[in-house]
Computed example of a mutant assay.
Amino acid sequence: MSLTALSLVLFAALLHAGWNAMLKSVTDRAGVLAAVSAAHAMLGLALVLAFPLPAVASWPSIVASTLLHYGYYMLLFRAYRHGDLSQVYPISRGLAPALVALSAAILIGETLTPPGWLGLACVSLGVGILALQRGAVHASRQSVGLALGLGVLIASYSVADGIGVRLSESVFGYMGWLFLLELPVPLAIALTRRRNGGGFGGRVLLMGGLGGVAAVSAYGIVLYVKTIAPLGAVSAVRESSVIFAALLGILVFGERPVAGRLIAAAVVAAGVVTLALA
């Protein structure tokens, strides 16, 4: 992975951790998720109007990724209802890199070099340390199961998008349709709240809008880098967002203990450097 690709993915990881920190700071997580997906859809419409249609060969990936994202939002909502964000996030994001690398090897024959696999192992180990340090072993079976399910969905749509964007012949067109097809998510949440006589608070809309911009930027950057770097490496480095989230938790939310999270950060950093050199 080149230095440019590495820098872009690390920036995307920081953005991803940032919007999850916003999500953690509010009680109305469903409202924030609705605003985030609405921001996706609005940007998607702009991209659809501005760029060519993606190639026909990429549409199965768009459909698959869209359906997987619907499942992702549903599981994310349930996981945060039954488990802590600091438990769900590291488990779900930590499972994805190994599954992506394995799937890429099986589906498209894309394998990492031995140092690359070592780096992937370090990243996954560091994320695992963080998950255990945060008390995941004491979490309820339901929350752990939901987090594991999220990891499978994250890996699945990562592989689908990695393949689809390479076949699209229009990266921004692919992104546009992928984002636009998230529109049913905020519509469904808004319709449900209207039936129940509820609405969205101003703070929720503001936080969700900011989170949506960060989420769209992060995912768009990752989609682009997948066209110039191995899928497994991109997915692994992207999961350094777990470390950024841990640091944000320490510095912003005062979460403790510090030592275990710093150890995990060092392990992941070593994995990131190894992947970059590989």
Rank of each mutant, 00 (worst) to 15 (best):
L3G: 05
T4M: 08
A5F: 02
L6K: 06
L6Y: 09
S7T: 14
L10H: 08
F11K: 00
A12Q: 11
L15Q: 13
L15P: 00
N20L: 03
N20G: 08
A21F: 03
L23F: 02
V26H: 01
V26M: 01
V26Q: 02
T27D: 14
V32G: 02
A34T: 02
A35R: 04
V36W: 08
A38I: 06
A38R: 10
A39H: 05
A39L: 07
A41V: 06
M42E: 01
L43W: 11
L43F: 14
G44D: 12
A46L: 13
V48D: 12
A50F: 04
P54T: 14
A55I: 09
A55N: 12
V56S: 12
S58V: 07
S58A: 15
P60W: 03
S61Q: 03
I62Y: 09
V63G: 04
F77T: 14
F77R: 08
A79R: 11
R81F: 01
H82E: 15
L85T: 12
Q87S: 10
Q87N: 13
P90E: 11
I91T: 09
S92E: 14
R93N: 12
G94N: 07
L95V: 15
L102H: 03
S103R: 09
S103Y: 10
A104N: 09
A105F: 12
L107T: 13
I108M: 10
G109Y: 08
T111I: 12
T113D: 14
P115E: 15
P115C: 11
W117S: 00
W117P: 05
L118W: 14
L120D: 14
C122V: 07
S124M: 15
V127C: 11
A131P: 04
L132Q: 05
Q133Y: 02
R134W: 00
R134P: 00
A136P: 01
A136E: 10
A136Y: 07
H138I: 00
A139G: 12
A139Y: 05
S140D: 08
V144D: 06
L146N: 13
G149F: 00
L153A: 08
I154A: 04
A155S: 14
Y157A: 03
S158Q: 15
S158N: 15
V159P: 00
D161N: 15
G164L: 06
G164W: 06
G164A: 07
E169R: 06
V171S: 09
F172A: 12
F172Y: 15
G173N: 03
M175H: 02
L178A: 09
F179T: 07
F179Q: 12
L180A: 14
L181A: 11
P184S: 08
A188C: 10
I189D: 02
T192H: 13
T192M: 11
G197A: 10
F200K: 04
G201H: 12
G201I: 02
V204H: 07
L205S: 01
M207A: 05
M207Y: 00
L210S: 01
L210C: 07
G220M: 06
V222S: 06
L223S: 05
Y224S: 08
V225T: 14
G232Q: 13
A233V: 06
A236Y: 13
R238Y: 11
I243W: 04
L248H: 03
G249K: 01
F253C: 02
G254A: 15
V258N: 07
A259P: 02
L262Q: 01
I263F: 09
I263R: 02
V268R: 11
V272R: 13
V272Y: 11
L275C: 01
L277Q: 12
L277N: 06
